[in-house]
């Protein structure tokens, strides 16, 4: 079953916590999303590139504060994260 990056982020936020640094596993995420582990892992790396998630080599992952704030924006539309130039416009 295909899974979107956005749904992975939502599930990750539900299963982990940025402030308490609680993690979940890719395996658990894939099971909760009824998705292929490799697809979930691929999306996690994409989310990490956006500063929205932290994925570790041991197969655990958690949402970041940035990821939680993005979900609070409650936008299901086009989203681009320009993480490498955080202060470019300020």
């Amino acid at each position: 079953m295909s899974v979107t990056r956005r749904s992975v982020l939502r599930q990750l936020a539900a299963a982990s916590d940025a402030t308490r640094q609680e993690t979940t596993t890719i395996e658990a995420l894939a099971a909760m999303l009824d998705a292929d582990e490799r697809a979930v892992e691929s999306h996690l790396y994409g989310l990490q590139a956006c500063d929205l998630a932290r994925a570790r080599p041991d197969g655990t992952a958690r949402v970041t504060i940035t990821g939680e704030e993005l979900l609070e924006l409650d936008t299901d539309k086009l989203v681009i994260v320009d993480a490498a130039t955080p202060n470019a416009e300020s």
Binding site: D51, T66, L78, V81, P86, A88, E89
Partner: peptide, 23 residues
Amino acid sequence: LLERSELNREAGGVVNVYHSVDL
């Protein structure tokens, strides 16, 4: 055509996020 929001970054500073305006 896009809105820009600044989100906090765990390592400090902010991240620019671009998202669609209300449809």
